[in-house]
Amino acid sequence: MSIIQEFLRYNRQTILPEIGDEGQEKLKKARVLVIGAGGLGCPILQYIATAGVGCIGIMDFDTVEIHNLHRQILYTEDEIGQEKAIVAKTVVSKLNPLISVDAIPKKLTRENASKIIQQYDVIVDGSDNFATRYLINDTCVQFHKPLIYGSILKFEGQVAVFNHNGSKNLRDLFPEIPNPKEVPNCNLNGVLGTLPGIIGTMMAHETLKLILELPTLKNELVLFNTLNWNFTKLDF
């Protein structure tokens, strides 16, 4: 694609004085790993890809199931049974052929976390369980990687930025992994399909701002109740 076509693709954001050509070059050089290509991961991937993040890793070991389709908008019934990471790579690459996309159809484990996370500049946590969230957090702390965090349940979501420019991390907010039996989850309690779109887009927004060196959340947890539009920001 020519420089002119690239200019036309990104013009609506590069005309912002806070971004410009310099900011677009930062996005182009950035390497972002999205762990989880589900409800949160799908909108995150769409927006960071179309914004021009130059290299995106998509890590997910799961396959597409019919109950995913009301909220995981990268997939259709034609992909049921296929690996999410592989399908997501194909879709995201079509959204923006200028970028590089890596599919990692594996589960993040203690054995592979260090090797994989070290390869990227920014890590985005779109996972759906506490064991994975804490493994991601602890590995990011070990290797000084900024982490975009989000979670969803029913009509409510949370967003935070951890381990960036000296900021705190997940264990500063929640020191220990909760007992899974004591924590509600979407499988049992449900989620309205638009909620992960809202929270995932917020996470993508913080990811782009972080790369662009614009102000991001710092030692703040955003709590967003979309049933009554109650937006709270807590310091920690």
Rank of each mutant, 00 (worst) to 15 (best):
F7P: 04
F7S: 13
Y10C: 09
Y10T: 11
Y10G: 05
R12L: 14
D21A: 14
Q24C: 07
A30V: 01
R31L: 03
V34Y: 11
V34Q: 10
A37S: 15
L40W: 03
C42P: 08
I48F: 11
G57R: 06
D62T: 06
V64Y: 05
R71N: 04
Q72L: 04
L74A: 11
A88N: 04
K89L: 06
K94N: 14
L95S: 09
I99P: 06
S100E: 13
S100D: 09
V101W: 05
A103V: 08
P105W: 01
E111M: 03
K115H: 12
K115N: 14
I117E: 09
I123K: 04
G126I: 05
A131D: 10
D138I: 04
T139V: 03
C140Q: 06
H144W: 01
L147T: 05
L147F: 00
L153P: 08
L153Y: 02
K168G: 09
L173C: 11
L173V: 14
L173P: 09
F174A: 13
P175N: 05
P175K: 11
N185A: 14
L188M: 12
G190Q: 03
T194P: 05
L195M: 09
L195F: 04
G197T: 08
H205V: 00
H205T: 15
L208M: 08
L210A: 06
I211T: 02
P215T: 06
L217A: 03
L217R: 02
E220Y: 01
L221M: 15
L223G: 00
N225T: 10
T226G: 03
W229I: 13
N230A: 13
L234V: 14
L234N: 12
F236Y: 15
